[in-house]
Design a protein around this nucleic acid. Structure first.
Lengths: 178, 178
DNA sequence: CATACTATTATCATATATGATAATAGCCCT
DNA sequence: AGGGCTATTATCATATATGATAATAGTATG
């Protein structure tokens, strides 16, 4: 959208586009010309509060968002998965090898006993496709959980048993759909 | 992109996605858990400095930009145009009526004597198309300015006489192209 | 040259964020 | 019930941004 790199450059460009002096901008934004100049010359420690006042005075909305870096490792390490899921495997010591050698066993245990963040972790480790594939093969001890996961498989992002869990789970599946 | 509204929500979502506790995030970001919690629960006065540290710790880039609001009046008022261009019309009192009744006269005067920000102002007032149309009809006193504007008309965003002016003018025409 | 803008930067008092710490409360697990 | 996590919030000392003001310098204009 905007070819200008820093927010300082964007503020200056917009101000000049509107033909405002620093003093005029400062008055509109209810701040000082010194501060406005500091924001345009740019250093590191702005306050979002002031930034938003300046943006509003320039007839703009201030957009702040996180953009995941390409190299950012979203997939957790096997050791982290083991450490966090170990408590679900009281009968046996969980090892990293099990994750690759017997993922169905791990998936069954996690969807049976795990919390939502346990499921999230496993999905990130196995990948969405592999996880759902194992869910399709899994055996369930309770009809309730079976029905829930059946719905997930049939049409992703679907209501489930309890309201709070349903909302959170639904948004999670929507978000992970890519 | 991200359906979550506030930056606070985005930070929390990303942190939970990575399976970090507030204390872990704070350590990675070289800040305190109290601050991390404050940023996630959200109030108004964040510092961009801290925000950026948190974003980096979450493997993200912090994006900050101005988005012009739809209703934002970019077109200046006639009175403002008159006030700012009056100095170019020493021989006569410029009035708002002249802008609509005799725009060619105004355009000629401005492209002959005005600075870049004068031209910007007039373009915003008349609109890009009308402005260029009048430029095409305009008479020039110097061959140099005629050649410059001829180039603008032939292929927009083109080099001109001096380097500094050329760069600024070129980027201006590129930006105003819609 | 004089006047009047402009932007930048310095200084200083004040307002506010931050970090350390602790208290509270909730949740999970044994 | 108890231990160990977690997140939130309060408090307080300190670091930093902000606003007011002024000094400096540049530029346009008369």
């Amino acid at each position: 959208m905007n070819g200008l790199s820093t927010i300082s450059d964007q503020i200056r460009a917009r101000r000049e586009e509107l033909g405002l002096s620093l003093a005029q901008l400062a008055r509109r934004a209810d701040t000082s010309a010194a501060t406005a100049s500091r924001y345009e010359t740019g250093w590191a420690r702005f306050e979002v509060y002031t930034l938003r006042k300046l943006a509003t005075a320039l007839g703009c909305e201030l957009v702040i968002s996180l953009r995941p870096k390409a190299g950012a490792a979203v997939r957790p390490s096997g050791s982290e998965v083991v450490r966090r899921l170990q408590r679900l495997f009281w009968d046996q010591r969980l090892a990293v090898e099990h994750l690759e050698a017997n993922p169905l066993w791990v998936v069954e245990r996690v969807i049976e006993l795990g919390r939502l963040d346990d499921i999230r972790l496993l999905v990130r480790f196995l990948g969405r496709e592999r996880f759902l594939q194992h869910v399709a093969e899994a055996r369930f001890s309770s009809e309730k959980t079976r029905a829930f996961w059946q719905q997930i498989l049939d049409r992703e992002g679907v209501p489930c048993t309890t309201r709070s869990f349903r909302d959170e789970a639904a948004s999670f599946w929507r978000a992970s759909r890519r």
